[in-house]
Design a protein around this nucleic acid. Structure first.
Lengths: 239, 239
DNA sequence: TATTCCTTCCTCAGAACTGGCGAGGTGTTA
DNA sequence: TAACACCTCGCCAGTTCTGAGGAAGGAATA
């Protein structure tokens, strides 16, 4: 750690932040602390909703949203499937859309190097905390080596604050399912047919249907598949 | 932070650990460092699979697994739905099964206080990093206040190592879906019927069926609902 | 005590999904 | 060039799910 005290000071400022706009300021302060070109927090969830703050060029951010680059961006795709923080070099940039995306990103000032920390929450909540910079591989590797811990920690604090300020997005108050409804959803998520679930739970298929329907209703789902998807996303079932 | 250097030393030992058994030793070392009664890492995923290491009484661990307390434990249920680390006091212990569970846990030496960090990964991976202790509320609150950052960080390092040592459990090498298959799964997870999805993608319903079937095959799923559930769990679609 | 929620059971018709058969075109890669 | 994966389309028969009606007892809560 370069300067433990300066870092702790920023963390404490982050803890005490009480408005979303402060995150913007803090991201600039952190960028200067880490001495990188860009530092970005990017939050993703449900039906393409996004929120972000950081030091990227607003033009680029706008374009990213408009073009739904979310579904092309190898950083998002890669982090979505990894637990560990990811150096951008480890990602798969070889597909055609990914290369076009990369070229455009760099043209908008995004660095050639990057490091992203994936952060996950309940309800399928997913966020990325990213630092990006222009430098050679060795310099970058050394930076990551020394800053890894701080980046992980600060990423989580960012996420915590972002959720705090936007409570609508976080809990989404999915009414809890009854035990039988949980059973039903669980086995359906495991691939059982209705008949199999009914058999497993030793109840009639008609009874099972009642549970599925009430779960569907509680989850605001259009069909069984949708209900199972939402139950999974809300962490209501553990498969 | 009480003793930054001692903590860093443990983190580095954790980084260099090369065997699962070392995690057991390190959890004891960390317990002593934090001066708590218990410190546990508990990993959960797919079809009730579990793995843990830490300082709980093995008898209790055995019983926990046998009785499937995973599905009763308010700590698991609570953390599964939260992003933030959780003080056990914040959880809902009022249901009958939860109270029975709590009584039994305390009888087996688990502390009256507890703090658990939820950790999530791709593929629906979920883990808990917990410290537990016997003391009054004020003492505990003070401990959490001072140790929160370290607990978050060390929990993530633990998880990283646990994944590293058990690679079978982590990636599960779900073959990637083709773009059209991703589209199909995505809209199905959003509750669209087959007809609606076909319409949205401007393809015939039969073509859509081909995608669903091939996605089903790749995901090893028994039916559409199962396929969507797996696609979600593997982070192959972003809904 | 009244109300609400959970659990369990029923039927029937129409809608939706699944499995099996087939076909042809494009693009990448060994 | 051949193999492979991807995208697109069709039909038929059978299975499964959904919607719209019910009914009744027990537990918890206000």
């Amino acid at each position: 750690m370069k300067d433990g005290l300066a870092f702790i000071a920023i963390l404490e400022a982050l803890e005490q932040a009480s408005e979303l706009t402060e995150l913007q300021v803090l991201s600039e302060r952190l960028r200067d602390y880490f001495k990188v070109d860009h530092l970005v927090y990017h939050w993703v969830s449900g039906a393409g909703e996004q929120y972000g703050c950081g030091t990227y060029d607003p033009v680029w951010v706008q374009r990213y949203i408009e073009k739904e680059y979310l579904r092309v961006d190898p950083v998002v795709a890669g982090c979505y499937q990894r637990f560990h923080p990811v150096d951008w070099k480890m990602l798969n940039w070889s597909t055609k859309p990914a290369q076009a995306f990369q070229a455009e990103a760099i043209a908008h000032g995004v660095g050639n190097q990057g490091f992203s920390v994936p952060i996950r929450g309940p309800s399928g909540q997913f966020a990325l905390f990213t630092v990006s910079h222009n430098c050679d591989d060795d310099t970058w590797a050394e930076f990551i080596e020394t800053s890894r811990r701080e980046l992980i920690l600060v990423g989580h604090y960012f996420n915590q604050k972002a959720l705090e300020f936007e409570p609508d997005r976080a809990p989404e108050a999915a009414r809890a399912l009854s035990p039988r409804e949980v059973d039903a959803m669980t086995f359906l998520a495991m691939g059982y047919s209705r008949a199999q679930v009914a058999n497993t739970l030793s109840i009639s298929e008609h009874t099972l249907r009642v549970y599925i329907e009430s779960a569907r209703f509680k989850l605001g789902a259009a069909n069984t598949t949708h209900a199972v998807a939402r139950a999974l996303q809300h962490g209501l079932i553990i498969v």
